[in-house]
């Protein structure tokens, strides 16, 4: 029996983990890169210090921008928060059963991206528009892939509810090595990289406007708004990595009706899993160059193909 207390505990744990942990994840990834490149690095806490500094600044909006510009960071942050609350990160108890659905989650994340793109357009500057257009291109290529992967994963379970999918995988570990799951994992991994604007799609640390995608879009933001955006993108990465971990390696996740201790253990395991994934991603970025923009569609077409193969495999091998 799921008690309201349990649900509240789980939601709180997940939100706290994401809110507090996301900047730490970014910090850790930067640290891993720095160490691999032979630098000392700024320390894991640096993103939090940056956020604090930005938050203390006076809010400034460029002339001629309207409510769209001011609202965009809020929408981006809010959608990530909702997603963090409903996805099964620490436990499969779906607190808001109707919302903890892959479609809903994808739509919420896309809403955040669209809000930021509109904010970028609202400034009327060249870079804002260019970044928004590129972000939308990537998004348009990413969406079908995500939908396909979802189909593939949900065929086996008969439901698109994330909790159900994770429960099924946790119960039947051999499913993870089936072609369906491997193709879908590969597709979703590529999509995650694209969605969060990492190498080889985009370079989060670039200072060259011509190659930017995500950073070009948010070029005009400053102060607390920028802090919110920075936090939202970090949280987005954290949530997506956590979701990947839950979908394809759901070991240690708390089942239905688990006690507080189990939730705490699950939270610890989640932190470890996401940290490992993040470290791998950072290490991969060190050894990889950013793709030229016109090769991005190739990679995304490849991920779409994988997702489609996952769907077909789930039909003909099932």
């Amino acid at each position: 029996m799921i008690t309201p207390v349990q649900v509240a505990v789980q939601i709180t744990v997940q939100i706290v983990l994401v809110v507090a942990g996301a900047p730490l994840l970014t910090g850790m990834m930067r640290q891993v890169r720095a160490r691999l490149e032979g630098r000392a690095g700024a320390g894991v806490l640096q993103p939090w210090r940056d956020l604090r500094k930005l938050a203390r600044k006076e809010p400034i909006t460029p002339q001629g921008t309207g409510w769209v510009f001011r609202l965009a960071p809020l929408v981006a942050a809010a959608t990530v928060l909702v997603v963090a609350a409903v996805v099964p990160l620490t436990g499969t108890t779906s607190p808001l059963a109707g919302v903890g659905d892959l479609f809903a989650v994808v739509a919420l994340l896309a809403l955040g991206s669209v809000a930021l793109a509109l904010g970028g357009l609202d400034t009327g500057t060249a870079f804002g528009g260019m970044g928004a257009s590129r972000e939308m291109t990537v998004l348009a290529l990413v969406e079908p892939t995500i939908l396909m992967s979802i189909f593939a994963l949900s065929v086996r379970v008969g439901s698109t509810n994330l909790g159900a999918i994770v429960t099924r995988t946790a119960e039947d570990p051999l499913d993870v090595v089936s072609p369906v799951s491997l193709f879908a994992a590969a597709a979703l991994a590529i999509v995650t990289i694209a969605e969060t604007g990492r190498i080889p799609m985009d370079n989060p640390a670039t200072h060259l406007e011509l190659t930017m995608i995500h950073e070009a879009m948010v070029l005009e933001y400053a102060g607390p708004d920028l802090a919110l955006i920075e936090w939202a993108s970090a949280a987005r990465l954290g949530v997506l990595l956590g979701l990947l971990a839950s979908l394809f390696a759901p070991w240690g996740i708390a089942g239905v009706g688990a006690g507080l201790a189990a939730v705490a253990l699950a939270a610890l395991i989640l932190v470890i899993k996401v940290a490992v994934l993040g470290a791998l991603l950072a290490a991969g970025e060190v050894f990889m160059a950013k793709l030229r923009l016109f090769r991005v569609p190739e990679l995304l077409a490849g991920s779409f193909l994988m997702a489609l193969l996952a769907v077909s495999a789930s039909f003909f091998l099932g």
Binding site: L174, V177, S178, P179, L182, L309, A313, L317
Partner: peptide, 11 residues
């Protein structure tokens, strides 16, 4: 599962 995995790698 092993057969499916082999075919998946083949594909």
């Amino acid at each position: 599962p092993l057969l499916d995995l082999g075919c998946g790698a083949f594909l």
